[in-house]
Design a protein around this nucleic acid. Structure first.
Lengths: 112, 112
DNA sequence: GGCTACATATAGAGAGCCTACATGTAGACT
DNA sequence: AGTCTACATGTAGGCTCTCTATATGTAGCC
């Protein structure tokens, strides 16, 4: 998976993974890996700053917890985050439609 | 269309538009606008540097021409560019598959 | 003379993802 | 006791791409 390709779509992935249950950063990375069949194995240096950015934007809220002697910062979707996720999903659909229509290989000469 | 979303996919778009016929920069912008139904209206500051980058990479070759008193730099796909386009197309397919699978909204609690 | 369409080009800004590094706990194995 | 792996979070800096803004010039119409 090319790094640039992901750009601008990571937010949607993170919000989507948090849709039905709160998770902490490490668990989010694992969830993304699972849901993508191993294709997405994102480094912590990508995930943690992104989560903070989304929290600053008001889409996520976080709380600290200690489980088995280890500290976790657990993130959950806010109302605004839920709305944002819906918007990102529809943006994703139009995005793929547009790019696919341009990439469509079946373009034999239109004249003749 | 968000600027970040496009990142990493522009190359494929450019190569695709040049697949069946050479075009100059201005015509490429118009072709993208047409094929995307108006959704893609990319600025010259995006297109021209990208074309040069692709030429430097060996995917495109260019020649100057004068048409109606105006100078055009016409780009065409090279063999390497054709191969790259094929690769980009398959990368696009796997990319959308992966992201869509993570974004899939139908994830009602797996237990119960 | 001024406007629009055609046509190319570059400098600099902005933003996001990644690499690399830093820190620490828990548990298993030797 | 020492080492290793998994778990867990975080930041600094770099890289690269796209966009904004600006510059330059021709052709044709009003």
């Amino acid at each position: 998976m090319n790094a640039d390709a992901l750009r601008g779509h990571l937010d949607a992935l993170l919000l989507s993974v948090l849709e039905h249950e709160p998770r902490h950063g490490y668990a989010i990375i694992e969830a993304l890996r699972e849901r993508s069949g191993g294709a997405l194995d994102l480094p912590t240096g990508t995930i943690y700053p992104a989560l903070r950015r989304l929290e600053r934007a008001g889409y996520l809220a976080s709380e600290w917890a200690t489980v088995g002697g280890r500290k976790r910062r657990t993130y959950r979707l806010t109302g605004a985050g839920r709305a944002e996720l819906a918007g990102e999903r529809s943006a994703w659909t139009s995005f793929t439609t547009v790019i696919s229509s341009v990439l469509d290989p079946s373009r034999p000469d239109p004249s003749r």
